[in-house]
Design a protein around this nucleic acid. Structure first.
Lengths: 214, 214
DNA sequence: TGTAATGTTTACCAATCGGTCAAATTATCT
DNA sequence: AGATAATTTGACCGATTGGTAAACATTACA
């Protein structure tokens, strides 16, 4: 008889690792487009090429799949902000933060959309993580930026809203991809738009923070 | 016998206007949170305080409700961009565009989220509008901005990405409201965050576009 | 006021939903 | 090879889904 997943305390088998990976990959496809409520286990099973009960053998509920996915994405999603270095050069730190966030929008658009979907719904599954770890991390980096401004290394600005604006502008190229492509038209819809965006955003933010000498 | 809605070619009665308004209001509540697939007619009927068949008397399908809602929102949503005046002063035009978009994020967050949900899903219901009217309007304003830069009134920049960045930063305060509030914490979660954002964004964009004199 | 058109509701339908069960199949280990 | 544990699936369940039919109630208008 099959051992229910929750009771397994031993290490995972090879098959478990492989199948859980396949399922989460399929779940990312589906959840990132339709959100939690709009997605069905059948859709995910279909994409994964497995039967529905087989999915439920690895994840006991739809919520468990979503949970596992969110946990994984949330961690890697904050990686660029964690890498933000207080001891680095302010201009190059901000520049590379923008570039990394833009690369993530380009290379992991589904992860971005999964997160965006969760936010739009009011973050019913991750509000605690937002108020806890996320706020703590942001607060920490806000202090770094504030110190830079105090030391006269960059222009004064509201660090919270600076971070928000970097998040929103970069993630826009993942979340609103259809719109971006539609507006740019067929000819500019190659991957070149990410380089154009990088150039524009680096200029916008870095010039904006440069101390103005009259 | 009731006349199916599609067959009605005459002018609408008082009751029709009232009830359709109530239904669309409720539909906006629901669709903006859960997206099209994640929303149910029952939910909307519940919010509207009407029976499900009664909703379906006014809108024959769930798609028809969504369609009517999108059409209405799409028009008003582009109002600020239409108001963008080629003959105005560049700095004040951009400044007031930002302020208006931010006011819309504050006063009509549901409309913003409805639109964002549609984008995340790949714009299955509005892709034509994006490629047509939206692109045309943006292209027109892009030429205005380009002319300003050519005339030396503002710094050179990629007008498309300028517009994208204004969209994303302002709409962020509606679409990612939960996150913004969580990060800012209880104390800064009053409506004051919109004024802080306005100050920050106006500085960011206007300073960034000011011609630099060395 | 009568009556025809409009508006509303109860009861219902087939399809799909998340999830269970037991039987069948496959992998693992001795 | 055989026993045991892990994996997979078809059949199924009650609840919910989008939508319909027809009876009932209300309104508008002659």
């Amino acid at each position: 008889m099959a051992i229910p997943r929750a009771a397994r305390t031993q290490r995972r088998t090879r098959i478990q690792e492989e199948k859980e990976e396949i399922i989460l990959e399929a779940a990312l496809d589906v959840f990132s487009v339709s959100g939690f409520r709009g997605s069905t286990i059948d859709q995910i099973a279909d994409v994964a090429g497995m039967s529905k009960p087989n999915l439920l053998y690895y994840f006991r509920t739809k919520e468990a799949m979503h949970r596992a996915l969110i946990d994984r994405v949330l961690f890697t999603w904050l990686e660029p902000l964690r890498a933000f270095d207080a001891n680095g050069n302010p201009e190059s730190e901000i520049r590379s933060y923008i570039r990394r966030k833009l690369e993530m929008a380009r290379d992991f658009p589904r992860e971005s959309r999964l997160f965006a979907n969760e936010m739009l719904q009011g973050a019913p599954h991750v509000e605690d993580e937002l108020r806890g770890p996320l706020k703590a991390l942001v607060d920490e980096k806000v202090e770094v930026i504030r110190a830079w401004a105090q030391a006269g290394k960059i222009a004064k600005c509201d660090p919270y809203h600076l971070i928000f604006s970097i998040w929103s502008t970069t993630q826009h190229y993942a979340d609103f991809d259809v719109q971006v492509r539609a507006v740019l038209g067929e000819e500019h819809s190659g991957e070149g738009r990410f380089e154009d965006a990088a150039r524009y955003l680096e200029q916008l933010f870095v010039d904006g923070l440069r101390i103005r000498r009259l």
